[in-house]
Simulated assay, not measured.
Amino acid sequence: MDRKKIEQVVNDLFFSKEAAEYLGISSQRLNQLVHGGQVKPIKKTPAGSLFLRQDLDERKRNLKTIAPELAKDNQHQKMDLNTPFLYEVMNYYTIQSFYNYSDKKTEPVFKELSEIIDMQQEFMQIVQKLSEALSIDKSKLQKAYKKVEKGFQSLNKEDMIIKKGMNDYPKLLALTKEAPPYLFLRGNIHLLKEKIVSVVGSRGASEDGLKKANRLARHLGNAGIVVASGLARGIDTAAHKAAIENQFPTIAVLGTPITRAYPKENEKLQQVISRYGLVVSQFPPSSQVQRWFFPMRNAVMSGISLATAIVEAGETSGALKQADYALKQKRLVFIPQSALDNENITWPKKYIEREGAAKFTKIEDLFAALEKAKIIPVAEKEQMSLLDEGMEKVYVRQFK
């Protein structure tokens, strides 16, 4: 190899400090990413590690650094709806509107129709055949389609729709009975391939509960785990904000279409997450939001996650619905000791008696369980315990 080629190779190699600077993160954060398997050095020696530029570039693409403020919005550019795949998606949701927005009822019907009609054709070309096959008046089908089309026109050019069975569809979610046929995404789709843990809880959370959610989300992020939550008031909002404030990615799983914000006060937070994290919804932009959409999204949130931590919840909290789905889907469920000690609620003891649910007094207990389940490597616990000085060490050790 001549000298010019050698110099080119050397220029593409980075020592740890250089790699951290190139990624715009601390050396400690780089070590955490290495231990978590998100960044792989090309060589490790007692003197240090070497990283390849193209591996670091890939990491940059997959996990954008979260900025504290929104950049100015670009002018809205509509998604191109004139493709065979988008015709199929809009045709599906047109038919779904006649089945009370139920995928369970719609999927088998759509499958049968696909065997006799090319469902990737533009709706108006197949509406007569659909009318005959479904015994639904043609004018009603056309009216439903126009509503679906209008909703889809509100999607951005950068928004994504993925179908169950595609490579980008979350593999863990695909294994569940609750996996929806399509997911609507806004943001960094690569986050779905990261290790995800849901942090959920009460909308009317106490001040202590909000602090716990903040600390837990922060420590999960430090361990290279992506925090998912539902963008609701209370615990969800605290978890998302903790990730953002500490420049960690976060995923918001909505009970509304990605084109809407609920609650309204979280509209800007949703925009920040969609720009620097990921917003996920199983509901088309044409759908009218129903009360049962929110527990449905809990099934999806649990489905993309390796575990769910319930920070604080009352007896009727929606977070318990997610716990039910998580256990059904063979996921871990974590419950803080403080909930078990609360004599005003009975649900914690009921869940602890079920396989897959575990209590934790300290954040270290939760990380130990994640280690045991091989969700994080052993080294991460050691990293987490040495994160910061002063009060941070107190927070790591006290989670009651």
Rank of each mutant, 00 (worst) to 15 (best):
N167Y: 15
Q96C: 05
K150S: 14
A238V: 04
I116Y: 08
T250V: 07
E58H: 04
K157F: 15
Q247N: 08
F85H: 12
G48D: 13
D2T: 11
E115H: 13
R331G: 10
D118P: 00
Q142V: 13
V272C: 13
Q290D: 04
G318F: 08
A313L: 06
W347T: 02
T346K: 15
F248G: 04
G187P: 07
P41F: 06
K5F: 14
E88I: 03
L155S: 11
A313I: 05
A71L: 14
V280L: 09
P41N: 03
E371I: 11
K150F: 12
K359E: 13
L370S: 08
E364M: 07
K381F: 07
T45A: 07
K129G: 01
R215P: 04
K147E: 14
Y93A: 00
Q120H: 14
A238Y: 02
G390Y: 01
A133K: 11
V253Y: 07
K393H: 08
M1A: 15
L386Q: 12
V279Y: 02
D118W: 00
N266Q: 10
E207M: 13
E265G: 06
L141G: 01
G165F: 07
V34Q: 02
L370C: 09
I251F: 02
N31C: 03
Y87C: 08
L33K: 02
F51E: 00
T65H: 01
K362D: 07
P46R: 12
F294S: 03
K330L: 04
I345T: 03
L141Q: 06
A223H: 02
L172Y: 06
E312Q: 14
T308Q: 13
F293I: 13
L155Q: 11
D103L: 03
I196E: 04
A179V: 06
L254C: 10
I162T: 09
V378C: 01
F367L: 12
E149F: 15
A313N: 02
S16I: 01
H76T: 07
K359D: 05
D159W: 05
V280R: 01
Q77T: 11
K111R: 14
V226C: 05
L130C: 09
A20T: 10
F184S: 06
Q38H: 05
F294G: 01
G314D: 15
K111N: 12
E18I: 02
Q38A: 11
E265A: 12
S27N: 08
A358C: 10
K105A: 15
P285A: 09
Y99M: 10
G204A: 10
N167A: 14
E107G: 04
K104D: 11
Q282A: 15
E18N: 11
